[in-house]
Structure formats: C-alpha cells, structure tokens
Design a protein around this nucleic acid. Structure first.
Lengths: 142, 142
DNA sequence: TATTGTTATACTCTATAACTATA
DNA sequence: TATAGTTATAGAGTATAACAATA
C-alpha cells in the first residue's frame, strides 16, 4: 500500500490527528472544535456557513459544534436571537484558542522535527494546491 | 489554520479520501476494505492481527471487516475453523483487488497531477518517515 | 502467559434530507 | 429565490473493554 500516495496521506493524517486529539483533549477540545474556535478567534463576526466553507464542514455539522462552544461560553453570537449573526470568541474562548494553537504548533514541530525544512515547504505547498483546487470547483452542493 | 501542517494534512486527506471513496464505492468497497483486500492479495497467509499492525487498525475492528470480505467470497481462511489461520484472496477477491489498485493509482495521478514530481517524492518520503517513527515505538497497547 | 480472534459499545466526523427563517 | 441556520438520521472509522481460544 505504501506506493499509493493517497493512502499514505490518509495513514499519516490519522496518526497525526490521533496524537493531536490526545493533546487537545487535555484542554477539553476535539480537533474540529479547535479548528472552529481558532477560525472564529481570527475572524470575529464570521458566519457559520462561512466556517463550513473554509474548513470543509457541512453547514448541518457546523451548527451543533458551534452550539456546544456557545453553551461552554467560549463563543458568542453578536446578537442574541435571530439568524445569520456574526460569531466572536469570549475572553475564555480566545484564551483557550491561544493554548490550542500552541498545542498544534508543538504537535507539528514534534512530528516533523525529522523532516527537512524544504520538504515541509513542499508538502505545505502541495497540500495547499490540492485544497484550493477543490474549493475553486463548481461549488459543491450541500 | 493554513499555517498548521498537521491540520493541512488532515484536510487534504479528507478531500482525497472522499473522492477515492466515491470511486471505490462503484466496485463495492470502502477505503479500509480495499486496504485490507490489497494487503491480503499481496501477502497470502497473513494473520488478522498483522493486518491490524500494518494498517494501523485495531484487532477489534479488523475482525468484522475481514468477516464481511469472507461473506462476500473475496477472502478465505486457509483452514475453515479455528483461529490464527492465514488469509488468502479468492480469485474474485484478487480480481477485485487489481481493479481497486487501478482506481487508487488513477486517483493519485489525478489529484497530484499539478504537483511536481520532486514534491511528490518529498511528500512520500516524509509521510513514510512519519509512519515508521510510529510503528517503531514501544508497541502501542490495544 | 502472551497472542489471536471476537463481540459489544460508544464516540467523532461526515453526509443527506427536510424544515424554518431571513435578505 | 437564494442564503443561513437547525434538526434528525445514517454510515464509516476508530477506541476501549471484556471474553474465549490457542500457542
């Protein structure tokens, strides 16, 4: 199976995510929750639908995730009732996002410590191209 | 989030696997079933426990997957009853594994067609190192 | 005793469909 | 009408625990 790049990617991703999930679990977050929390912290006022588009998560799946973050007072809606209102992190949410980012960076550094800098850049660039070639498509239906 | 390599890896993996799952679905296989079928086809006599170790799947999860392949007459046990018996593909299972490999290769080629050959090699090598640094660990408990 | 295989169960993530509300 | 949000449901993948059978 090692000669299939797609499969290698999957296996490596599962491995990296398993260790990252352990680390993030210690501050009470899952990987997806973390990605949403950080995205909101960096983009105050963002809509749920945009979170879904940026992170590749269906609208239907963003809803319960954001609700959970809101219940835990990590995220708040700029206007309490109604829809299509921007999301922001609370102070606690922002603080947690900073800790989460630190954990993610440490995870990256540890896992790729043996990987030459040039290779890291090649991977980053290739994976980014891969992702952009997707989001630029006809606009995947829901 | 784009500056976190681990997260980029996850997102790219999800994307690649979604399209691969579609393709393999057309021949009635999931991604994990395919990985098991191909592994058996290339390693006649392999044990379930070894499949788990090689592919990073828990023993407990290999059992129902192999059972399903056996029910569909794609895989057979060398000795009908008892345990710890080697697995082999049937003729139908082997034929299907060949088709599956073709699909996986086409998927790789299509997705990484824009990626320079050198970058592909860098990715392959880095992901392989990553995986081997894992399996060489103390022997993860079940 | 250590390894292998099995079953049951639960959680995470993602997908689809159907519905409501809003611009 | 198109977009945004919600709810319910289903499936794939993985994790843990407990148990039986085997070497």
């Amino acid at each position: 199976m090692e000669d299939h790049l797609g499969y290698q990617l999957r296996r490596a991703s599962n491995l990296v995510m398993a260790t990252l999930a352990d680390q993030l679990g210690e501050i009470g977050l899952t990987v997806v929750e973390t990605s949403i929390l950080i995205l909101i912290s960096r983009n105050a006022g963002i809509f749920q639908s945009e979170i879904g588009r940026v992170l590749g998560i269906k609208r239907a799946n963003v809803a319960p995730l954001v609700s959970a973050l809101e219940r835990r007072d990590l995220v708040s809606r700029t206007s309490p009732e109604g829809r299509a209102v921007g999301l922001t992190t609370t102070q606690a949410g922002y603080d947690l996002s900073v800790r989460a980012e630190m954990i993610m960076r440490e995870n990256d550094d540890r896992l790729f410590s043996a990987t030459p800098q040039g290779a890291c850049e090649a991977i980053r660039s290739a994976l980014d191209d891969l992702w952009r070639s997707r989001v630029e498509k006809p606009a995947r239906e829901d």
